Amino acid sequence: MSAKGAVETIEPTAAQRTAARRVAEAKATIPDFQASIFYDNAPPLGAAIVAAGRALKAVAAVNGAYVDAKFQHYEAANVGVVLAGATPVVLDADGKTAEAADAEIAAARAALEAGTLTAAASANATFTLSHLAADGIDTYTSIIVPGHAASLAIGARAATLSADARIVTPQDAAAFLKALVAALDGATAV
């Protein structure tokens, strides 16, 4: 026995191995920067999803990817939402209400807990959002998923955009965050 005490080795699940590989790939290959905006009250998850979708439509560079030395801009604003164990996608998030987005994520969470969430439910994201405000996390950064230009971390005190510097400029990041704040005011209406 070492000074560390007893060591337990745990075999990761296939999903955990995939997540570990993708995180390592992202950190090794995506030159990123972060930009934050602070607020008094964090937006609820559904409102954040819808506002992110609307901000993606307003700033094309953030709703895209740098692939094979070319810029790709996506037409749809499909927001993947990080949950423990999966990232279900709210398709066309810009056209939904906060309540509709909340309902989709609640259904995905229930399916994940029941072990019935399909791979299709996590496909076709153009952007990723993680929301830890309810867990008391004030601010943090998220990792950009390969094939995306950026990701958004919603904390209790700040929203932080992590952006791929190859496609998103600091001005694009600022425009996205301004559009996000503007969209939060109308996130419950279509």
Rank of each mutant, 00 (worst) to 15 (best):
S2T: 15
A3I: 09
K4V: 01
G5R: 08
G5K: 09
A6Q: 11
A6N: 13
A6D: 15
E8S: 14
I10H: 12
E11K: 14
A14V: 10
Q16N: 02
R21L: 00
A26E: 03
P31Y: 01
F38E: 15
F38C: 10
F38W: 04
F38N: 13
D40T: 13
D40M: 00
N41K: 14
L45Q: 10
G46A: 11
I49E: 06
V50R: 04
A51S: 09
A52Y: 03
A52I: 03
G53K: 03
A55D: 02
A55G: 10
A58P: 07
A60N: 08
A61H: 05
A65N: 06
D68A: 15
F71W: 07
Q72P: 00
Q72D: 09
Y74V: 02
G80R: 11
G80N: 10
V81S: 11
A84D: 15
T87G: 01
P88F: 05
V90C: 10
A100G: 10
A101S: 13
I105Q: 10
A106L: 10
R109G: 07
E113T: 15
G115L: 02
G115E: 09
G115H: 11
G115N: 10
L117F: 10
A121K: 09
A121S: 14
S130R: 11
A134V: 11
G136R: 04
V145G: 04
A153T: 07
A153F: 05
I154Q: 10
A156Q: 13
A159E: 04
T160M: 07
S162A: 15
D164P: 08
D164V: 08
A165F: 01
R166H: 01
R166C: 07
V168H: 08
Q171M: 09
D172E: 05
D172Y: 02
A175W: 00
A175N: 14
A175V: 01
F176G: 12
L177D: 10
K178C: 08
V181P: 02
V181S: 14
L184F: 07
T188M: 08
